[in-house]
Amino acid sequence: MTRKKTNWIITVLLILGSLFILFPIYLAITIAFKTPPEMAGNLLVLPKSWSFDNFKQAIEMTNFFNAFKNSFFITFFVVIFTVLTNSLVAYAIARNLHKKFYKTLYFYFLSAMFIPFPIIMLPLVKQTSAWGMDNLVGLIVLYVVFNLSFNVFIYIGYIRSIPVELEEAAIMDGASTWGVFWKVIFPLLAPMNATVAIITCLGAWNDFMLPLVLLSDQSMATLPLVQYIFQSQFSTDYNLAFASYLMALAPMILVYVFAQKWIISGVMRGSIK
């Protein structure tokens, strides 16, 4: 048998392709450091000096840290609550799928995946504001609840692969159903929890539509929403705008650089299921 050699043609093609991915990011970085007069010439050249003035100004103008705090607050709690509650619900359903009620519940959650958000958008906006939920806490509740339909689906597949014998042994030792879940099942779910956490985190951090329609108080705006709100104030100051965009993208890029392998394998695990 021949051990294959490195395929250089494909390597080169993939490198060229990756330039297409990196180009907008390169452009965003260089423009964020330029000054308006530098925009007149060739857009591809590097900025003359690497000054952080645009960033400073953007931070002040958009109240960046406030938006960051909002995004972080939402994302953090959505991830925590989603992992804790959704796995629990999935467990309850997975262990009772032979019963009609739970089977119906499973398909109920599943079918909701096919309901596009715009359909519930108009009434939901009214309902949440009437109940005083047009704020960050309201957003968190909605994300956690909406996440159920997808997460129950992927958790259940995983839970069903865990042998019931493990639980029975724990019950013999006197553990309650509650205890069995937290002591036996939940730790076993760790890889799946990581997957759900990553996908949930990205979803909550980057979402634009729900904050757009739900939040009216600007001091609650999330990072993407802030970029939208300040569109008209950036006007044609692209340097300022790009500095602001870059800062909004940066937290996720940083996390990605350090946890890239973990994130990719996490998402992959979710998809193999």
Partner: peptide, 17 residues
């Protein structure tokens, strides 16, 4: 002062806010 201010204002009217 958001973009598409009139859509936003109408949304706020719908929300009674």
């Amino acid at each position: 002062s958001p973009p598409e201010a009139e859509t936003v204002l109408k949304t706020r009217l719908t929300k009674n806010d």
